[in-house]
């Protein structure tokens, strides 16, 4: 226990959490007030607890459809990204093959394209395919940055599993798919948990591509939010309430994968 931690760790953690939660508190604070109150005067606590901003969002389909759309494409993206990244990460971790090192680094370079100019060809490509304004278009486009990330993270975790485990399993007569599902996946649960969370997170908060590829039917929540900026001024309260509501699904996801992250390495066999 003591060998792993360092003195003052509690203090650091508490101070950091205060820093992390202060802006979140302010977001909640704003979401419970009217626009006049927000821009009017400073207050440590909201004068009165008004849920009007939340009611406005949850009763208006043009608002809550944004959440549904985002959840649909983010889920498709996360499942597909992790599913195809797992075997690839295993291959990179265990074998050498023609061009493996170049391919591994090339994957990551697809995350490095500054979006401003690249949005237009993305729009043209998905228009040509007839996929514009569908959930699958956003899910596929987001794989450009999520699949490389998933492969990189999972490769690290699979490389942490000693190779003797594979060899023992093959000697015991396991086929590759059975070894993969029965032995390897349980050993890298932590890695899969983190990877799924990151795929979810990066797809959930991405705005530029998602907005470019959709108009009505698959419009994500982050794009819906931009309409609080209008000629009449900012609708701060509604924007803040919508912001609070965008944190909720992700917080649920991390709550469900937390056990896998915290469980670590269940090395029963060694």
């Amino acid at each position: 226990m003591s060998a792993r931690s360092f003195p003052g760790r509690r203090i650091l953690l508490v101070l950091y959490l205060l820093f992390a939660l202060a802006p979140i508190y302010w977001l909640v604070h704003m979401s419970l007030r009217s626009n006049e109150a927000i821009t009017g005067a400073f207050a440590w606590f909201p004068e009165s607890l008004s849920l009007a901003n939340y009611v406005g969002i949850l009763t208006d389909p043009s608002w809550y459809d944004g959440y549904i759309n985002s959840i649909i494409y983010v889920t498709i993206n996360t499942v597909l990204s992790v599913a195809i990244a797992l075997p690839a990460a295993y291959a990179f971790s265990r074998y050498s093959f023609l061009g493996d090192k170049h391919l591994f680094f090339w994957l990551l370079t697809n995350r490095m394209t500054p979006p401003a100019v690249f949005l237009l060809p993305f729009f043209q490509l998905y228009t040509a395919l007839g996929l514009i304004d569908t959930h699958i278009a956003v899910a596929l486009a987001h794989m450009v940055f999520n699949v490389p990330l998933a492969v990189w993270i999972l490769e690290g975790f699979i490389s942490g599993v000693p190779r003797e485990i594979d060899e023992t399993a093959y000697i015991d007569g396991y086929s590759f798919p059975r070894f993969f599902v029965r032995i390897l996946l349980p050993l890298i649960k932590a890695g899969i948990g983190v990877t799924a969370f990151f795929c979810f997170m990066f797809s959930w908060v991405e705005l530029l591509l998602a907005r470019t590829l959709t108009s009505v039917d698959a419009k994500p929540i982050a794009a819906t939010m931009t309409r609080t900026v209008s000629a009449a001024g900012m609708d701060w309260g509604t924007l803040a309430a919508a912001g609070v509501l965008t944190i909720v699904p992700g917080a649920l996801v991390i709550y469900f994968v937390r056990r896998y992250i915290a469980k670590g390495f269940a090395m029963g066999r060694v």
């Binding site: 953690l13 959490l17 992390a20 939660l21 997170m201 929540i221 944190i247 917080a251 937390r258």
Partner: peptide, 21 residues
């Protein structure tokens, strides 16, 4: 669990909302 969830919160805010906050 609590620390994990609290810590992850800033990551889950859409980027335009981060600026607004």
């Amino acid at each position: 669990s609590l620390v994990l969830v609290l810590l992850a919160m800033p990551l889950l805010v859409p980027w335009n909302v981060v600026g607004t906050i």
